[in-house]
């Protein structure tokens, strides 16, 4: 449990670094490390499929997409962030963490997780039989993404 808590603390630290750091490349790498830690947390929760997806897709593919975008928008670092926001963010975040801890401590044991129906079969049965509509939705989401990217990078016709 100590290792799991350390991983969770690391996840929050790298996620906050991803938002706070000025250099976009460092932010993207921090986000990838946070995804990697989340994947390890999933593995330790005995959820290997979600962990493998988190590490391969989120830590790998999405980081590559971010780095590619940062490379294509070279002067992206020039954006002037609000100075007040730079000061306020850590203060409000620390206050939020304190309130979060107090609320969770007060709720401890009072709101139990409701029991769920027992799951039959393995992961394949649950994914392919129990969540079939989700899979159709996933296919639709991927197709929507592909067509959206194609539409956004469409070249002008000669007649236009």
């Amino acid at each position: 449990m100590i290792l799991q808590t350390a991983l969770l603390i690391g996840l929050v630290i790298f996620s906050v670094l991803a938002i706070v750091l000025r250099d976009l490349l460092k932010s993207a790498i921090s986000l990838a490390v946070a995804s990697l830690l989340l994947g390890i947390i999933f593995f330790r929760m005995k959820a290997p499929y979600a962990g493998a997806f988190e590490i391969s897709v989120v830590a790998g593919l999405i980081t590559v997409l971010f780095v590619l975008t940062i490379a294509l928008t070279k002067s992206g670092d020039d954006v002037r962030e609000s100075k007040i926001a730079n000061w306020v963010f850590p203060l409000v975040f620390v206050a939020f963490i304190v309130i979060d801890a107090l609320v969770m401590k007060s709720l401890l044991g009072k709101v139990p997780a409701l029991p769920a129906a027992a799951e039959a079969g393995g992961f394949g049965d649950v994914l392919w039989r129990g969540r079939t509509l989700d899979l159709i939705g996933q296919i639709a989401a991927i197709l929507a993404g592909v067509f959206a990217v194609l539409a956004l990078f469409r070249k002008k016709d000669k007649h236009e």
């Binding site: 959820a47 997806f53 799951e119 992961f123 649950v126 994914l127 129990g130 969540r131 993404g145 592909v146």
Partner: peptide, 23 residues
């Protein structure tokens, strides 16, 4: 104790996330 359903939901979310990020 319904980790398999949670995994299926997280995988669905990750797939949608990839599509969203690309767009």
């Amino acid at each position: 104790a319904s980790l398999l359903t949670a995994q299926a939901l997280v995988i669905t979310y990750i797939v949608i996330e990839v599509s969203l990020v690309a767009t």
